Computed example of a mutant assay.
Amino acid sequence: MRNAIVVRPAPGGGQTIARLAALGIPALEFPLFVIAPVAWSPLNETFDALLVTSANAMRHGGIGLEALTALPVVAVGEGSARAARAAGFQVAVTGAADGREAVEGAHQVGFSRLLHLAGRDRIDLPGVTSMTVYRSDALYPPPGALEVACGQVALLHSPRAARHFAALVDRDAVPRHKVRIAALSEAVAQSVGGGWGTIGVAPRPDDVVLTALAAKLAIDP
C-alpha cells in the first residue's frame, strides 16, 4: 500500500490527513503553501450573491464578512459550502465542477451580479466582480525534499498547487511515473501535466471525494 502526500496548507491539510486516516491510509502532511488574510473592505455596490471557490475565503475573510452575511452563497463545491455555513452564511447553489460551472448555476437561479471572495492568485471569471480577501504564499522546501513523494500518492487541491508540486518533483529529479496523482478537478489534472504513474480526478470538487479517490489509488496494485 502506498502512502499519501498532502500538500494542502493548514488547516485544510490536517482535515485531509484525518479523512485519510479514517480510511486506513497513512499520510504525510507536506504543505507547499501558507495562507494569510489580506486587509479588505466590502464594496459599496449591490450584489445578488457571493461566489466562494475556496474555503479559505471563509476562514480568512475576517470581520469584513459580517457585512455580507445577508447575501446567499454560490459555492464551487461541498467543501466551500461547508465553510460558508460554518461562517454563518446560507448556501443557495453548490456546484460540482469549477468556478465557471458554479457561475452558470448562479445565473440559472437568477443571480446575475456576483461578488467573488477570492485569493490573490486566481483566475478571474467573466462578468464576476472579484475581491481579494486572502493570499496563498508558495513554500520552497530544500533540494531533495520531494523525494518523499516517490512511490506515493499526491493529493492536489488546486491548479496552482498542481503546477508547484510538478515543478518541485522535476527539480528533485523524482521520476513522474513513480508518483500517482489524485486531483480535485479536471483543471487540476491538466495543470499537473503528464508522465505520472496514474492521474485520478475526483467526480466532484470535494475533499471527502478526493480522499476516497486517493485511498483507492494507494491500495490499487
Rank of each mutant, 00 (worst) to 15 (best):
M1R: 07
A4L: 11
A4R: 09
P9G: 02
P11S: 08
G12Q: 15
G12K: 04
G12H: 07
G14K: 04
I17Y: 05
R19Y: 09
L23Q: 10
I25V: 15
I25E: 00
P26K: 15
L28I: 14
L28W: 14
F30M: 05
P31H: 11
F33R: 00
V34K: 14
V38Y: 05
A39K: 15
P42W: 11
N44T: 15
E45Y: 05
A49L: 09
A49T: 10
V52C: 01
S54M: 09
A57C: 13
M58R: 04
M58C: 07
R59T: 04
G64R: 04
L65K: 05
L65Q: 07
A67N: 13
L68W: 03
L68P: 03
T69K: 15
T69Y: 11
P72N: 08
P72I: 10
A75V: 05
G77T: 05
E78H: 04
G79A: 00
S80I: 05
S80H: 03
Q90P: 01
Q90A: 10
V91T: 06
V91F: 03
A92I: 12
A92L: 12
V93M: 05
V93R: 02
T94Y: 07
G95E: 01
A96Y: 07
R100A: 06
E101A: 15
E101C: 11
E101K: 10
Q108D: 13
V109P: 06
G110F: 14
F111W: 06
L115V: 12
L115S: 03
A118G: 06
G119F: 04
R122V: 11
R122L: 09
I123W: 15
L125G: 05
V128Q: 10
T129P: 00
M131E: 10
V133E: 09
Y134M: 01
Y134W: 08
Y134I: 04
R135F: 07
S136V: 05
Y140D: 09
P141L: 10
A145F: 15
A149T: 14
A149E: 06
C150I: 12
C150T: 09
V153M: 11
H157A: 10
S158R: 00
P159L: 12
P159N: 11
A161N: 01
R163E: 11
H164P: 03
F165Q: 00
R171C: 02
V174P: 02
H177T: 10
K178R: 15
I181H: 07
A183M: 06
A187H: 12
V192E: 03
G193V: 06
G193I: 04
G195C: 07
G195Y: 13
G200D: 03
A202G: 14
P203M: 10
P203E: 05
R204V: 12
R204C: 02
D206R: 04
D206M: 13
D206V: 05
D207G: 03
V209F: 00
T211M: 09
A212K: 12
L213R: 09
L213F: 11
A215V: 03
A218C: 15
A218I: 03
I219H: 12
